[in-house]
Amino acid sequence: MKILIIDQMHESIIPMLESIGHQVTYSPDIKREEIIQSIEPFEGLIIRSKTPMDRDLLQYAPNLKFIGRAGAGLDQIDLDYMKSRSIKLFHAAKGNRDAVAEHALGMLLSLFNHLEKADSEVRRGIWDREGNRGHELAGKTVGVLGFGNMGKSFAKRLKGFRTDVLAYDKYKKNFGGKLVKEVSWEILKEKCDVLSIHVPLTSDTRGFLTIKEIESFAKPFWLINTARGEVISFKTLNEALDRGLLKGAVLDVLENEKFKSFSEEQKEEFEILAARKNVLFSPHVAGWTFESYEKINKVLVKQIKKEF
């Protein structure tokens, strides 16, 4: 099969695909218009998230048999149109689930123990022990919203911390066991001290965490978001933090990750958010490790080999 790769991938992807008989064109810098002009002969397409895979583009790919998504999120792919064309979809959530889980836990521990603040102060000659007194994860109840690859992997990382882990997933049932206790959304909101988001971006999850939803939690909690920023807005985060509904937040994803395209409201709200000492950011890199970069290839190629 002729396969076009339109995003930056670990270099191992090309020999891996060629070893199972496929012809690979690697064009990580290709622009959308160039994709439209050149996609016609290709039967496979491997992407990250640079270019939306919508009907307007895919209509120019009459020979396309599959799309391989090097990652977990599918919100930029027209799944209904793919289904109507019988185009298969492969995605590599298993490739970066360990990276996401470790990053989420690392950010939470850093926030709990003021590690960024403490490091900065010591470098400046400030030795403030009391001001950097932290919290322990042991004894806390951690709620996991969404129990797919990422949520399950995060729950596994918590096992050694003597936490109670509760999980809610709207689309999955009977997954509870030694790792987590399966609960309703209402029970999770009643019990959790920490909420970690692991849901895809859909019409159901976009803007899901409103201020009204956060008000319905039984007690203030810490928020972890390594999933999709659009689940909660800057404005909601600021109001919840101002009112003490949130104790703090670790954010690997943002409502809008293109700073230059911020609306005036987003710019104002983000500046307030960025000034907070109980908020920790990273630039959407939770699944972006050296190891996951290569593991994603292995997961994709295994799926492609099985079908083609």
Rank of each mutant, 00 (worst) to 15 (best):
T202N: 06
I187D: 08
L115H: 04
G125V: 04
K173E: 13
K172Y: 07
G139M: 01
V183N: 05
E182L: 08
G177C: 01
G148E: 14
L201H: 13
V142K: 07
N132S: 09
N132F: 11
S110G: 03
G176T: 02
K152H: 15
V122W: 06
K178G: 12
L137E: 09
E116D: 13
R206T: 09
I211S: 11
K178E: 13
T163M: 13
N149E: 13
R157K: 15
E213H: 12
G131V: 14
G125C: 08
A138F: 00
F154Q: 02
F175T: 02
D128N: 15
K212D: 13
T141I: 03
K191E: 13
G139C: 07
N174C: 09
F112I: 11
A118V: 13
L166S: 01
K181M: 03
E121W: 04
L111K: 01
R129D: 01
V180W: 15
K159P: 00
L145V: 11
E130H: 08
H135A: 05
F147E: 01
T210Q: 04
H198Y: 01
V142L: 13
K173W: 00
G207Y: 04
G207F: 02
R123F: 13
S110K: 11
I197Q: 11
G125L: 12
A138C: 15
T163C: 14
A118P: 04
F147C: 01
S216C: 09
G148M: 10
N149L: 00
F112A: 05
T202D: 00
F147V: 11
L111G: 00
R124G: 01
G134V: 10
M150V: 07
N149V: 00
D164C: 03
A138S: 15
V165S: 14
V183A: 12
S196A: 08
S216W: 09
V142P: 10
Y168N: 07
K170P: 00
F161D: 12
G151K: 10
S203G: 01
G131Q: 13
L137F: 03
I197E: 10
W127V: 08
L111V: 11
K170I: 00
P200C: 06
I214D: 08
K219D: 12
K117T: 14
L158A: 11
I187R: 14
K181G: 02
G160M: 08
R123W: 05
G176W: 03
K172N: 07
S120K: 08
L115R: 04
L145I: 08
E121M: 11
H135K: 14
F147S: 02
I187A: 11
V122E: 01
F154M: 05
V183C: 02
R206Y: 14
